[in-house]
């Protein structure tokens, strides 16, 4: 056996086997042995049971009882090994748990150190400066935003104008009814509506006389308005 497994030494990752690993291996080897022992005991129990049954059948009462007593003893051994197995399993679990806890503690310590290093790189004063700088920048940005708000680009303005045009056109359309497109073919006899001769009224004067009257009227009006100016001037011209 030794020859076959001699390659175990000198391997690259040998260093990864710690004393804890060796301790666990020893415990587990012990557990394996107990399990093998249990297999053996179980075989003995089986055999004693068979012997007892055989003896009982052949009326060998004493031998049957002896076999049963032997079986009882083996069963007690089995119980003891169960207890031992449990103790070993507990020990293995405890070691593994302790190992995990150590690893966790180490990692927490590392994390703590890393945190400290990070804190060193940034003092509280610096943070305050940065925060106030940031506030200034935010204020400045707000000012810029305010200054810019309400102003549009040429493009946006063109768009707005186009929209307005569109709205106006639509409004005009809704004000006037549609002009029918088709040709109207209506023949109205206007003779019924308009008489060819105007009816002559007996009261009315001939047109020429009427025109004379109007002319006279105008002259009268002119005469009544002119003299005020002429009357004012006359004395001057007379001198």
């Amino acid at each position: 056996m030794g020859g076959m497994f001699s390659f175990c030494g000198g391997s690259a990752r040998k260093d990864q086997i710690s004393d804890k690993d060796k301790a666990v291996l020893e415990l587990k080897i012990q557990r394996d042995k107990l399990k093998q022992y249990q297999i053996k005991i179980n075989l003995v129990i089986q055999r004693e049971t068979e012997i007892a049954r055989e003896c009982a059948k052949n009326n060998k009462k004493q031998q049957a009882i002896l076999a049963l007593k032997k079986r009882k003893y083996q069963e007690k051994l089995l119980e003891d090994t169960d207890q031992n197995l449990m103790n070993i399993q507990e020990m293995v679990s405890t070691i593994e748990q302790a190992h995990i806890q150590i690893k966790i503690a180490e990692q927490l310590k590392q994390g703590n150190n890393a945190l400290k290093e990070l804190h060193k790189e940034m003092s509280l004063e610096e943070i305050e400066n940065i925060m106030s700088d940031t506030q200034d920048a935010v204020d400045y940005q707000n000012e810029i935003s305010e200054a810019l708000s309400g102003k549009f680009t040429q493009e946006e303005e063109d768009e707005l104008m186009a929209e307005l045009d569109q709205m106006e056109k639509q409004q005009l359309k809704s004000k006037f009814p549609e002009v029918p497109n088709n040709d109207l073919k209506i023949n109205v006899n206007l003779d019924h509506v308009l008489p060819t001769k105007l009816p002559s009224s007996p009261k009315s004067k001939p047109i020429a006389a009427e025109a004379e009257e109007i002319e006279v009227g105008i002259e009268e009006v002119e005469a009544s308005s002119k003299p005020t100016k002429e009357r004012d001037r006359v004395p001057e011209m007379a001198i």
């Binding site: 056996m1 175990c8 391997s11 040998k14 990864q16 690993d21 060796k22 291996l25 080897i29």
Partner: peptide, 13 residues
């Protein structure tokens, strides 16, 4: 990693 314990019993990690 194969390694041996007592009485040439072998373990593996």
């Amino acid at each position: 990693q194969i390694f041996s314990g007592s009485e040439n019993n072998l373990g593996v990690k």
